[in-house]
Design a protein around this nucleic acid. Structure first.
Lengths: 198, 198
DNA sequence: AATAGAACAATATCGTATTTTGGTCTAATA
DNA sequence: TATTAGACCAAAATACGATATTGTTCTATT
C-alpha cells in the first residue's frame, strides 16, 4: 500500500515522462510538469530537488526496468547462443519503447561527436550491457559452447560485440533502413558467435 | 606537363583544402580562399562554379586518393585474412590524414542522428568500402580460407563488417579511448574472421 | 581569355529589449 | 507540522531591428 507521498511522486514522474517523451528535456518546462500533475511548481520542489532530478529519476527508472526485462528474458534461454539472440531481440524491442532512455543514448552520441563528452548516462548503461553479454559468454564457456577466453578478452569481446551492434544501429539510421534493423543485428550476432564457438 | 590552368586550379584547391581543414566549410569564406590563392574572387568563379564545388572537388579527390591507397595496400597482402587486417590498419591510418574527408563522414553521422538525412558523400563512400571488403571475402573463398556464402550474404556481411567497425570507432570516440582504437578494430576483425573461416 | 572589383540579395551577426524559466522563499492551508 | 500556492528573482532564452558579411553575378579592364 503506497503512501500518499509515493502516489503523488509517481504522478509527477509519469506526467513528466510523457512530456519529456513528447517535447524532450529542454522544451518541457517545470510549469508544464506541474500542470500535468495538477499541482503548483512549489509542490514539485517539495518532492524533487530540481527539474534535472525529475529527469534523472525517470531515466534511472527506465534503465532499471530495461535491464530487468533484459536479464529476465536472457535467463530463460537454455543455451548461450540463444541467450545472445534473445538479448539482441529483447534489447531492440524494448529499448525503443523506453523513449526517454533511448533518446538520452542518442543525445550522448551526438554530444560526443560534437567533441563534448559528458556521458551522464551512457557509460553506466553500456557497462551494464557489456556485463550481461560477458556473463553469457561465461555461461557459454561453462556449457562448452564457446572457446575458453581470458577474463580480459571477455571484457574486450563484450565491448566489441556491443559496439558492433551500436554501429549497425547507427548505420541503419543513417541509411534509413529501420525495417531491416533486427534481422541485421541478428545476422551480425550470428557471425560473431561463429567467431567464438568451439 | 600541366597547363597553366591546371596549375592555378590546383593552387586554389590546395589552398582551400588547408582552409577547410582548419576552419571547416562554413567558416571558410570565398574571400579567404581567393586570398590564399593570391587571386581575386572572380578568378575563382572562372575556374569553379561555386564554393560548394570547390569543396566537392576536394572531397572527391581525397576519396579517390584514399581508395587508391587502400586498394593498393590490400592487393599486396597474400592471404584474405591479412588483406582484411591490412584494410583495417590502412583505413585507420590514412583516413585520419584526409581531414576533410574524415570530417565529412562524421558530419553526416551527426546530421543523420539529428533526423536530417542528406548523405552527400557517405553512401557512396561506404559502398566503396563494402565493395573492397566483399572482394576480399570472394578472394578468401577462392583461396579456401573462408566458407562459401551466397552473393547476397556477402553483401550483407560486408555491410555488417564495416558497420561494426564504424560502431567501434564511434564508441571509442565516445569513451575517449582513441589510443586503443587500432588494436580494438583489429581484435573485432579477428573475431569476425573467425566467424567466416573454414 | 583571364581577371579585378563593384554591386546585389540573401544570410548571418550583433546589440538591446523583452519574455521565459528554474528555483527560492514566505505565507497560507489542511 | 506537513504540504502547498503564488510572488519574486536572477539568469537564460528569445525576439527583433539594424548592420555586417557572404556567395555570386556582372561589367569593364588587361
Amino acid at each position: 500500500m503506497k503512501s500518499k507521498d509515493e502516489i503523488l511522486r509517481e504522478r509527477i514522474l509519469s506526467g513528466a515522462d510523457r512530456l519529456f517523451q513528447k517535447y524532450g528535456l529542454s522544451k518541457t518546462t517545470v510549469e508544464d510538469i506541474a500542470r500535468e500533475a495538477g499541482k503548483g511548481k512549489s509542490t514539485l520542489y517539495y518532492y524533487f530537488k530540481s527539474k534535472e532530478e525529475i529527469f534523472d529519476v525517470i531515466i534511472q527508472n527506465e534503465k532499471k526496468l530495461f535491464f530487468e526485462i533484459l536479464q529476465e528474458s536472457v535467463s530463460k534461454a537454455p543455451t548461450a547462443k540463444e541467450k545472445l539472440h534473445v538479448f539482441i531481440i529483447t534489447r531492440f524491442t524494448r529499448l525503443k519503447e523506453l523513449t526517454n532512455l533511448y533518446n538520452v543514448m542518442i543525445d550522448e552520441v551526438k554530444e560526443a561527436l560534437d567533441g563534448c563528452v559528458t556521458l551522464r548516462y551512457r557509460k553506466q548503461y553500456e557497462q551494464k550491457e557489456a556485463n550481461i553479454v560477458k556473463s553469457i559468454f561465461q555461461y557459454g564457456i561453462v556449457t562448452g559452447e564457446f572457446r575458453v577466453f581470458s577474463d580480459e578478452d571477455l571484457d574486450l569481446m563484450a565491448f566489441c560485440f556491443m559496439s558492433s551492434q551500436h554501429g549497425l544501429e547507427i548505420d541503419m539510421i543513417i541509411h534509413n533502413k529501420l525495417d531491416e534493423m533486427l534481422s541485421r543485428l541478428n545476422f551480425l550476432m550470428s557471425l560473431l558467435i561463429d567467431g567464438i564457438k568451439k
